[in-house]
């Protein structure tokens, strides 16, 4: 080792050179724009596929999409969904969910229910701010879920498209579950979506 390097080393050690080296980096960051932002005054932009609170959807004419098949309940890994189904008193021989609960405190936001739904009645939204003082309000019932679905309909549509649940076209959104047994005439033509 030459004298020069040795001197350099001794000097570096004495002057805490590595600290200055690091301080240089830190000092540079003083001129950066801060990467943090001031929540809740500033909000993060949330991507389309974000798995936030669940909402129930309706068809364009206001009818419930959900037919109460309980598949979301079966698919749920945390058992937070409860569907109570029955025959629709207004439309005989049609099944519907008379009650629908999602215990959002148990929900793990995996999106399996949406994936399972055979009629795309469920979708996740970008809504994530629902903290409350009363834990009981976190048991979302049917009414609340439809409210979420209505208020965040655009998010829901984007979610379904992003996660390959439906095509980004109006035609696929118009898909409607058809009750074969509600046919009244014995020989009725095929419904449009089946042909």
């Amino acid at each position: 080792m030459s004298v020069g390097t040795l001197t350099k080393k001794v000097l570096q050690a004495a002057l805490f050179y590595e600290i200055w080296d690091a301080m240089k980096v830190t000092f540079k960051h003083m001129f950066h724009r801060p990467i943090t932002f001031q929540y809740p005054r500033e909000q993060r932009t949330i991507p389309d596929g974000h798995r936030g609170a669940l909402g129930l959807l309706r068809y364009g004419d206001g009818r419930d999409r959900c037919v109460g098949c309980d598949l979301c309940e079966a698919a749920c890994p945390s058992r937070c969904i409860k569907v109570i189904s029955q025959e629709d008193p207004e439309r005989p021989l049609q099944r519907f969910a008379s009650e629908f609960y999602i215990d959002i405190t148990k929900c793990v936001f995996c999106g399996y229910c949406v994936e399972a739904c055979p009629v795309n009645a469920l979708a996740m939204t970008k809504m994530y701010e629902y903290s409350t003082h009363d834990k009981r309000t976190l048991l979302f019932d049917k009414k609340r879920l439809y409210e979420v679905g209505e208020r965040h309909l655009e998010d829901a549509k984007k979610y379904l498209y992003t996660h390959n649940q439906e095509k980004n076209s109006d035609e696929s959104r118009e898909y409607r579950y058809y009750f074969p047994q509600s046919v009244l005439k014995p020989t009725q033509s095929q419904p449009k979506h089946l042909s």
Binding site: L71, A74, A75, P118, N164
Partner: peptide, 21 residues
């Protein structure tokens, strides 16, 4: 199965129901 097939094809719907339930 792909979701759009679940809507319209029985065999895909059965697949969907069996796999999830």
């Amino acid at each position: 199965p792909p979701k759009e097939r679940v809507f319209t094809n029985l065999e895909s719907m059965i697949q969907q129901f069996k796999l999830f339930s």
